[in-house]
Simulated scan of single mutants.
Amino acid sequence: MNLFAAPFPAGWLIASAVLSCCVLSLALAWLRTRPPAPHLAGALAGATVCVLAAWLMSGGVREGLSFHLLGAALLTLMGGPAAALVSLALVIAAVSVVGQAGLLAFGPNFIAMACVPVAWVWAVFVLARRHLPANYFVYLFVVAFVGGGSSLLFASLAALAQLHLAGAYPADVLLEEGLPFYFLLSWSEAFMTGLMAAVLVVYRPQWVSTFDDAHYLRRED
């Protein structure tokens, strides 16, 4: 999913970079007014390093069609969308510096692999909290497992759509050599997110800002 700048016209790169800067500015402004607690900030820093390691252990058959776990869902559940966007921006910048993504393609990468999955996971969380029973297993299976797996799939679709619109690869190549692998990888993402969320809410619930004991573990009279 790591995109390079070569297939994209200059206007696309500039527009996506401006949009990414606007989104990051809003995220940073939110964090300045509502900073995470010190223990959560430390946990997010550690999680960001782990996500970076997962991105660096990637493989692929074509430029722009690399395969790795995403980690956006877990970061979103831990720190909320603003913190997750900032963490993913740091990850994308790091993999770009080491040459596994295009530094000039920061905008397309950030939109596909940060904005899309974070927005999707947050939407799943909000809708599940509003419309589904306040249950521990709803949080784990619907929000973490289903939300995590589908977040990677939607991020992949966003990246593939950009490659197709930019004329990098024909649609049949993307559908045959990219989409099936991303679909399979989404199950690994779902399992990883669900497992890590389960471990954290049991042993370190203070590291998961979206998990509220009073809401999910309340007793029904």
Rank of each mutant, 00 (worst) to 15 (best):
residue 182 Y to C: 08
residue 164 H to C: 12
residue 161 A to G: 15
residue 178 G to I: 05
residue 197 A to L: 11
residue 197 A to F: 09
residue 169 Y to F: 06
residue 157 L to M: 02
residue 201 V to A: 05
residue 187 W to S: 15
residue 199 V to Q: 08
residue 194 G to L: 10
residue 185 L to Q: 00
residue 193 T to I: 06
residue 182 Y to R: 07
residue 163 L to C: 08
residue 189 E to H: 02
residue 207 W to S: 12
residue 174 L to T: 04
residue 196 M to R: 03
residue 176 E to A: 13
residue 178 G to Y: 06
residue 158 A to Y: 02
residue 173 V to H: 12
residue 160 L to M: 02
residue 186 S to C: 01
residue 205 P to N: 03
residue 197 A to V: 14
residue 200 L to S: 08
residue 187 W to C: 15
residue 194 G to P: 10
residue 163 L to H: 06
residue 181 F to T: 07
residue 181 F to I: 09
residue 157 L to H: 04
residue 166 A to L: 03
residue 203 Y to D: 10
residue 186 S to A: 01
residue 169 Y to D: 03
residue 163 L to E: 05
residue 157 L to A: 02
residue 166 A to N: 07
residue 207 W to L: 11
residue 196 M to Y: 06
residue 164 H to R: 13
residue 195 L to F: 08
residue 200 L to Q: 07
residue 169 Y to H: 03
residue 157 L to C: 05
residue 162 Q to H: 03
residue 189 E to Q: 04
residue 198 A to Q: 00
residue 178 G to P: 02
residue 178 G to F: 05
residue 206 Q to N: 11
residue 189 E to Y: 01
residue 157 L to W: 02
residue 195 L to Y: 04
residue 159 A to H: 11
residue 194 G to A: 06
residue 187 W to E: 12
residue 159 A to V: 10
residue 165 L to E: 10
residue 164 H to M: 12
residue 190 A to I: 02
residue 192 M to R: 07
residue 190 A to W: 00
residue 169 Y to M: 00
residue 174 L to N: 08
residue 160 L to D: 01
residue 179 L to T: 06
residue 194 G to T: 04
residue 160 L to S: 02
residue 181 F to W: 11
residue 198 A to L: 03
residue 163 L to Q: 08
residue 177 E to K: 11
residue 199 V to L: 14
residue 171 A to G: 15
residue 157 L to S: 06
residue 203 Y to Q: 13
residue 198 A to V: 02
residue 197 A to S: 13
residue 179 L to W: 04
residue 205 P to G: 05
residue 158 A to S: 06
residue 203 Y to F: 15
residue 194 G to D: 03
residue 202 V to M: 10
residue 179 L to E: 07
residue 191 F to P: 13
residue 171 A to P: 13
residue 183 F to V: 07
residue 166 A to K: 01
residue 165 L to Y: 08
residue 188 S to I: 10
residue 179 L to N: 07
residue 183 F to I: 01
residue 196 M to N: 07
residue 162 Q to E: 00
residue 184 L to F: 11
residue 164 H to S: 15
residue 187 W to A: 14
residue 177 E to A: 14
residue 188 S to C: 13
residue 180 P to R: 01
residue 162 Q to D: 05
residue 205 P to W: 00
residue 181 F to P: 09
residue 176 E to G: 12
residue 193 T to D: 04
residue 193 T to S: 06
residue 160 L to V: 03
residue 205 P to I: 01
residue 184 L to C: 12
residue 165 L to P: 07
residue 199 V to R: 09
residue 171 A to V: 12
residue 186 S to H: 07
residue 189 E to A: 00
residue 201 V to G: 06
residue 190 A to Q: 04
residue 165 L to I: 04
residue 201 V to L: 09
residue 167 G to P: 09
residue 202 V to Q: 12
residue 196 M to T: 09
residue 200 L to T: 10
residue 173 V to K: 11
residue 173 V to C: 13
residue 161 A to F: 15
residue 161 A to P: 14
